[in-house]
Every structure is written in structure tokens, then in C-alpha cells.
Simulated scan of single mutants.
Amino acid sequence: MPKSETNTGTKDQFEIHGDEVVEGEIKPIGGSAHVTLKKKHRGKRAKVVIIDDSDGGE
């Protein structure tokens, strides 16, 4: 998957339409990772935008 930075080092800008913005930390779980949300979000669709370009220590 390509990085969201261009050759000039600027980040891409996205327009997302939805009902709520929730910010959280991506945490490891097994061989994967997840973002924890409140129970009221169960069964709903979500989109995740990575805003930190660090590699998470990997």
C-alpha cells in the first residue's frame, strides 16, 4: 500500500462524510492492531485515517 506522503513531503487531504469523529490510539492485539470504540458503534461502518507516520516500533 503506498504511503500517503508525496515526494514533496506533504500529506494527502481526505474529505470524509459521517456522523462523528473519534480519535484513538491504535493498539496491538495478537498479530494485528485495533482501535477501541464505544459499544454504541458496534455494527457500524468506519474509516480509519492514519495521522502519525511513525512505524510503531516495527
Rank of each mutant, 00 (worst) to 15 (best):
A46M: 06
S32D: 10
D19Q: 05
V21C: 03
G43T: 11
K44S: 09
E20C: 02
S4G: 05
V22C: 01
I50Q: 13
V35C: 14
R42D: 10
T10S: 09
Q13E: 11
D53Y: 05
H17N: 11
H17S: 10
I29S: 14
K44E: 08
R45Q: 11
D53M: 01
D53Q: 07
E23H: 07
I50G: 04
K44H: 12
V22Q: 04
V22H: 03
E5P: 00
G43A: 08
D55M: 09
R45L: 10
K40L: 01
K11I: 11
M1R: 12
S54I: 11
S32C: 04
K39D: 05
K11W: 10
D19I: 00
V48A: 12
F14E: 07
G43I: 04
I51F: 00
F14N: 05
K39G: 04
I16Q: 03
G56I: 08
E25C: 06
M1C: 07
L37H: 08
G24F: 06
V22N: 02
S54Y: 09
A33E: 12
T6M: 10
I51S: 01
I29V: 15
V22T: 15
R45W: 09
K38A: 06
H17F: 11
G18W: 00
V49W: 01
K44I: 00
E15Q: 09
A46D: 08
D19F: 00
K38N: 08
T36W: 04
V49G: 00
G9Q: 02
H17R: 12
G31H: 01
G24D: 07
G9N: 05
G30R: 11
D52L: 04
G56N: 11
M1F: 13
S4P: 00
H34C: 12
A46V: 15
K3A: 13
V49C: 01
E58K: 14
S4W: 00
I29G: 14
A33P: 04
E15F: 07
E5A: 08
K38V: 02
H41Y: 12
P2A: 02
I51K: 11
T36I: 08
V22S: 00
I51W: 01
I50E: 09
H41M: 02
I29E: 15
D55C: 05
A46T: 15
D19M: 02
I50V: 15
Q13Y: 08
P2S: 13
V49A: 05
V49H: 00
G30I: 11
F14W: 10
E25W: 07
T6R: 14
I51L: 12
V48C: 09
T8M: 04
I16Y: 02
E58C: 03
I16E: 11
K11F: 11
